[in-house]
Design a protein around this nucleic acid. Structure first.
Length: 476
RNA sequence: GGCCCCGUCGUCCAGUGGUCCAGGACGCCGGCCUUUCAAGCCGGAAACGCCAGUUCGAACCUGGUCGGGGCUGCCA
């Protein structure tokens, strides 16, 4: 049997990392098994559904490199793969379930159901005890699935093992709302059956809904899929990852200067291990090694520190040319304008030094902006820490004088001249270089000084030393 | 409350009865290197929740207990 898996994000919000990890595991499983990966959209929540989010989902999945074989945007034998286009199909299933006696109409008012639930809780029973088939039958309201009495639902969850739910613990759940819109349980199960989904790989938050889905599939006369429930992603507080934990949308990471390959790798090691000590591995290696059996059962805290570290690893391991190309948009954004060819050459020269010390693409711009603007913005903390010390004026003046005559204006001679300066002033190298660094780059944190000065050029470097000296006098 | 899941360093992962006085990674601490910041290198602190049982022997098996989490909607 050919493996067919799907992800079914809803378009009620930007796609978040929890969904993305589920997508990743489905994708890895499909690719490992040579199966089909499907992207469908669960847009049954008419209230909150927003097509704008569809774009975000598609963009996010593509950015990560998760390509799909059927579904949104690529089509396939099952139409648009949007649930909103299949409401008639779900209604038809709901009605036929009623006819077959597997479901029934229910027009009991909300407050009555609430009372049932309250009573059940008080008595320590499950709501299913009271929310059961209505007699005599009515012909309006919602349609509820009628959970067969007595029979437990049993299945083998691929990651969790044997699972058993007593029928009493499952209440008669709504499958069709009174306005004719199907609920998630119905739409999702009908799609899984219609699309021939063989394995449902999803978050553990849906584990307790699984009996409902299996019961529904059986009532439709279909064999339920194999289920595998992934451990949840937690925030630092040990609770299910959600918006209140900060950046949970994939877009935030994309826009925050993270590399898709790093995010991919990081998500892959959250709840899964490749089988040995490797934590950094290629997509191909992950595909080759992926099995559901190696998925762990316990929830994983989404540790942004480790993601950041991993991003730095990928950034540094990247060929220089790739780093340069991928940095360009971020440099342009930081500088606020497109650069000239000459300026790009300057960037090329300094890029290897920036690559070594960046963990995020967003850090590249700020590190090189001093090369591409003459309206230097001094970092206030740096200025206060370095420039307010005794003797700084002399260092700046001396440095300007020496740089005016250094020949050729390249890294080595510049270094030699500034080291000579330190010696002449009778101070340590660090002490002498920091004021020069702040004057030239605007900050006490910058790429290596001599290379920076060389890249900036003689005239601009000298000019900056002079204007810093002037500022010193102004402030005094 | 009910149903269900989970429980190894702060965090992620390895470990499937002896080779574990528990291993790797992030983070943290200390040191080296050093013109800043990184990177790199060296070293360190840091965990089998608890109690019983099974066994010659348990992180690994069983029971209980405690703790955490998910679900409990005409959300998904």
């Amino acid at each position: 049997m050919t493996v067919r898996v799907r992800i079914a994000p809803s378009d009620t919000g930007s796609i978040h990392v929890g969904n993305v990890r589920a997508a990743l595991f489905n994708w890895l499983f499909a690719r490992h098994e040579g199966g089909t990966f499907i992207v469908r959209i669960d847009d049954t929540d008419v209230e909150r559904s927003d097509p704008a989010h569809l774009e975000d989902i598609v963009t996010g999945l593509r950015w990560l490199g998760l390509d799909w074989d059927e579904g949104i945007g690529v089509g396939g034998p099952h139409g648009t793969y949007k649930q909103s286009d299949r409401f008639d199909r779900y209604r038809e299933v709901a009605r036929s379930l009623v006819e077959a006696g597997h479901a029934y109409y229910d027009n009991r008012p909300a407050d009555m159901l609430e009372e049932f639930r309250a009573r059940a809780q008080q008595e320590g029973k499950h709501p299913g005890t009271y929310i059961r088939r209505l007699e005599p039958a009515v012909n309006e309201g919602v349609i509820r699935f009628s959970v067969p009495e007595g029979a437990a639902v049993e299945f083998a969850d691929t990651v969790r093992g044997a699972m058993r739910f007593e029928a009493d613990s499952v209440d008669d759940f709504v499958i069709l709302r009174s306005n004719g819109v199907p609920t998630y349980h119905l739409a999702s199960t009908v799609d899984d059956v219609d699309y021939g989904i063989t394995h449902v790989i999803r978050g553990e938050d849906l584990l307790s809904s699984t009996p409902k889905h299996m019961l529904l599939a059986r009532a439709m006369g279909a064999a339920p899929a194999t289920y595998a429930h992934l451990p949840l992603l937690f925030g630092p507080d040990g609770k299910k990852l959600s918006k209140r934990h900060g950046d949970t949308s994939l877009a935030a990471y994309r826009e925050g200067g993270y590399l898709p390959e790093a995010v991919f790798n990081f998500l892959a090691i959250l709840g899964w291990s490749i089988g040995d000590d490797r934590e950094i591995f290629t997509v191909d290696e992950a595909v080759a090694a992926f099995t559901l059996e190696r998925v762990s059962k316990n929830p994983a805290v989404f540790d942004t520190d480790k993601l950041l570290w991993m991003n730095g690893e990928y950034l540094r391991a990247m060929p220089l040319h790739d780093f340069v190309v991928r940095s360009r948009p971020w440099v342009v954004e930081a500088v606020g304008r497109e650069l000239t060819d000459g300026e790009w050459s300057t960037f090329d020269a300094i890029a290897p030094l920036v690559q070594e010390r960046a963990k995020l693409l967003t850090e590249v711009g700020p590190q090189v902006i001093f090369l591409f603007t003459d309206a230097l913005d001094y970092d206030e903390a740096s200025w206060n820490k370095v420039m307010t010390k005794e003797g700084v004026d002399e260092i700046l003046a001396d440095a300007a004088a020496r740089l005016r005559t250094v020949e050729p204006f390249e890294t080595e001679p510049i270094e030699a001249s500034l080291r000579a300066l330190a010696e002449a002033q009778g101070i340590g190298a660090g002490k002498a270089f920091q004021p020069v660094r702040v004057a030239v780059t605007g900050s006490s944190v910058s790429p290596p000084l001599f290379e920076s000065i060389a890249a900036l050029g003689r005239d601009r470097s000298v000019a900056r030393l002079e204007s810093a000296a002037e500022r010193l006098v102004d402030n005094a």
